[in-house]
Amino acid sequence: MTAPDQEQETRPSAAYARRQNVIAAAVLCAIGVGAAILSWQLGIGDLADPGPGLWPLIVSVAMAVIAAVLVVRSAPTGEEERFGRESLVVVIGVVSLLGYVLLFEQVGFEIPTVALLVLWLKLLGRESWRMTVIVSVVATAAIYLLFITGLEVSLPHIVHF
């Protein structure tokens, strides 16, 4: 599936992996503590008549404790991967999707869909312009026909027949 040199690219050093593990566990721990505080404020009640906060409190405390143990036991397990320059592609992907969602209801689905496809195919995928144009237009038309014409789903759209 993968060539050995690519593996070198994503396989982090032990120190890197450990640092990454500590950060991930610490983030989880912080979320647990934060959720615990919020749950506490909701009201705990008692076991016979639990308040809204009791269960979230139990869960978030358990999460914080497990995450704390993970912080201590941060030895690399071999499942970690390095973040590198190629991770930037993911950031672009996510930002473009955010833009897509923001425009979706404002201007209908058609134009953002074509735009997103062009961006991903040309910029991220380095397809030829010919391929890009064909795929984005055909796919958008197919989605229109499938969801709006075929299944009569109420997608925001600007093209009417």
């Binding site: 999707l97 955010l98 897509y100 969602v101 979706f104 209801e105 689905f109 869909t113 997103l116 496809l117 991903w120 195919l121 991220l124 995928g125 380095r126 397809e127 391929m131 795929v135 796919a139 989605i143 969801f147 789903v153 109420s154 997608l155």
Partner: peptide
Amino acid sequence: RAAILAPLTILITMIGVYTVRNNVFDMF
């Protein structure tokens, strides 16, 4: 090719999610 499949899949997913409750928030 993954470069073509990826954007198509993500689009279908996003639109599919919208149809669950007709809600843009769910896409976020």
